[in-house]
Amino acid sequence: MVSNRYLDDLINPEKNQNTFNLNSISKKDCEDLYRKLTFIREVEFKIAEERKNGEIGGPVHLAAGQEAIPVGISYHLNKNDYIFGAHRSHAHILALGSSLKGLFAEILGRSTGLSKGYGGSMHLIDKSVGFMGSVPIVAGTISLAVGAGFAISQKNTNSVSIAYIGDGGVEEGVFHESLNLASINNLPVIFVVENNLFSSHMDIKKRQPSSFTSRFAKANLINHKIIDGNNIIEVINASKDIIKETRENKKPWLIEAFTYRWFGHVDWREDIDVGTNRCRKSLNNWKLRCPIKRLKESLIEENIMDQSILDNIRTEIIDEINNTWEIALQEPFPEKNDLLKNIYFEKK
């Protein structure tokens, strides 16, 4: 049983600001995790900046602050798994190792983008890393991920399917239908609720009678685990066992990972004044719970890497991101006559 104290702390931004115990992770993996988290964070910052200055034409839903969840989950996934995202999926696809140039080109509406410029930030795909698609209809891909579970079951392989959902997505009816369908058919689907406590502007306390969405797993007899989504080590360790068990036992799981987004629902603003209960104080506290800050402090504390090396890595990453952005800006736009292509299947 998980203690109530532990659960209360998960949604209290003043708690869980501690460093991590890194014993379970090799030095090489520690560095790799730091790189991945920092990379995604800095990509989101870059996108925020370029959206603000008008270079990006469409809306962007940024995952700064939430990086540890997809990085930790993806640690145990491979290209034969099926991963479905939603409107806030830059982090999901990058954590799987997709191409940054492809992502940037897509957000810029270029024909060499991940979705050839037909999708933009909210419709991303990269089947080469197992990412089957993200769409901005809230809860729109949950049932599709269950369908991937059916396909796995038909083919009898040991792949798993991942459905990333937010705490708003669980309010859609199809979430309940999907959990029930996966449970009754014993499908290898892992529902990952990234609970950042807000749907658009609105606090979960004003939308649901409990802040813990994993109660819906209980109702469908689905095993679940509640974790600190801002603790990369906890995400890795919890998802390791869950993914392994799902591959073997072909039964669904639900992971509820608590986190917080640094930006508002959409674009670069912090939106501390447009929501209910989103204020400067809690945002600042959540920033102290930052998964990267905590990992960095842990690495220094345990003498695994020192401050200057970590800072150099970050600088390298920012340089790489800026270079890739400049390259993406040179990519071609679609042709006008591409408008009527791809409505139906076309032979390549």
């Binding site: 049932s143 369908g147 396909a151 038909q154 239908e177 999907s178």
Partner: peptide
């Protein structure tokens, strides 16, 4: 019954699941 699947009363999720399976190599 693994290829002919009767379902709960869930038209939305069942249709979505068939679409999802079709993206992963099945022809539902």
């Amino acid at each position: 019954k693994k290829r002919i699947i009767d379902t709960p009363v869930s038209e939305n999720a069942v249709t979505g699941a068939a679409i999802g399976a079709s993206l992963c190599g099945s022809k539902p």
